[in-house]
Design a protein around this nucleic acid. Structure first.
Length: 183
DNA sequence: TGCACGATGAAC
DNA sequence: TTCATCGTGCAC
């Protein structure tokens, strides 16, 4: 497999969200390598996107979104779950892609359907916020042999407060994949 | 310093 | 539809 270069992330967020499907998320932790295939993503386009955390300006929590592409934005939600994003586009643009579901490939225990369960299974927590995804212990890679994929577009989950932005089809997943959180 | 609520998940 | 559970952001 080939680690994705910085230039992969420094592109239009919708393009990145679609192309992350089928890629492998790799995390080396406590001597164990965990790998999951990304099967569901959501694009958060920037401060103009009312559903994005960056829509209300930079705060200590969402600072990573305003940073350079190819880094992780990990936040704590509902008092019990973590969610992981991949920062996209140039620094200051404040856009990111939320990873919503994985197909277990290696050393993953428990379910991986949904952003909270994904982080639990991959052992992703606040320590990985701001982490560079071109590092050797936490990164995303393209498999040597890609599979044929059909991509489904749907509205994002849990953003009904965002007015017309809630209706846009910015959620992407692999058609027919049993590990998608909400087919 | 207080408090309402959330890019969730599970139970009912 | 309700609840668990707590950090964050903003009001006061």
């Amino acid at each position: 497999m080939q680690k994705l270069p910085r230039s992969f992330y420094d592109r239009d967020t919708i393009v990145v969200a679609r192309e992350l499907l089928g890629k492998w998320l790799v995390h080396h932790c406590d001597g164990i390598e965990r790998i999951g295939r990304i099967v569901e993503t959501e694009a958060y386009l920037g401060p103009h996107d009312r559903a994005a955390h960056s829509a209300r300006g930079m705060t200590p929590r969402n600072q990573a979104m305003f940073g350079p592409p190819g880094h992780a934005y990990v936040y704590f939600i509902y008092g019990m779950y973590y969610c992981m994003n991949v920062v996209t586009e140039r620094a200051g643009h404040a856009s990111a892609v939320l990873l919503r579901a994985l197909q277990p490939l290696k050393n993953l225990e428990g379910r991986t359907q949904g952003p909270g369960l994904l982080c639990r299974a991959m052992r992703i927590d606040r320590r990985l916020n701001h982490h560079d995804l071109l590092s050797d212990d936490f990164y995303i890679a393209a498999p040597d042999h890609g599979e044929e994929m059909v991509i489904v577009k749907r509205p994002r989950v849990g953003v009904d407060y965002a007015g017309h932005w809630a209706k846009r089809h910015l959620r992407f997943y692999l058609k027919g994949n049993p590990f998608v959180s909400r087919p």
